[in-house]
Amino acid sequence: MLDLASGLSQADIMTAYHFSFCGTQCAALPSGALHLPDHDVLCVSDLHLGKSERIARRSGVMLPPYEVRETLEKLQADIAATRPTQIICLGDSFDDLEAAARLDEEMLLWLAQLQAGKTWIWVEGNHDPGPINLGGTHRSEIKIGTLSFRHIATAMTAEVSGHYHPKHRVAGRSRPAFLYDDCRLIMPAYGAYTGGLVSLTPALRQLFMRPPIAIMTGHKAIPVPVP
């Protein structure tokens, strides 16, 4: 059950949802990050950093250019609370490779500070398929304990993936949500400017053998069965 020695702050024990997935202890944080206390791993998916830059470049529409700091601020808080040794960014960390190359100095520095002293894994996604000129290791997938981490779900079991930006609606409130069953776990999008895919859409549902559990993000991670 709860491992008070794992370095979780009191607040996180209160608001995270702890569960066992394919033999690995997991904590779904209300921010949308996944913590593996036994492995000191923190995983986040679909940051889409540089989205506003990419939209301006491609369409001329200039969204508030603050999504990178908003996302890094959230990530910094989760890192401080969970003190992981390894961080996995599970793909689509950047809205495209050019956006990654164009991050401004201040954000690069901030990212470097977050990376300092940690093993940082960039898992590639469909938006950021190539290597990026930032610290950390670039991988197509990675195994941690019993689990494998990749961006888009495959037929494999014991798999953690992202890509779909799942959301779920309970009591009239729709929120980004983790979805999981015995075989796979799909992470919500962590980035500030990300939309969502409703948990009931066929594209998402067909990935699960039976109705999954949704873990709602928000003030507190709350599990709820998907009908």
């Binding site: 969204l63 999504e67 779909y164 939309g195 969502g196 859409t201």
Partner: peptide, 24 residues
């Protein structure tokens, strides 16, 4: 084409502006 990742809520833009650029 589909609801997938297509749009994110304008509420997010509002919250972001209110936080980082309140005089916008």
């Amino acid at each position: 084409k589909s609801g997938r990742q297509a749009t994110f809520s304008s509420d997010i833009l509002y919250d972001t502006l209110a936080k980082y650029d309140p005089d916008h």
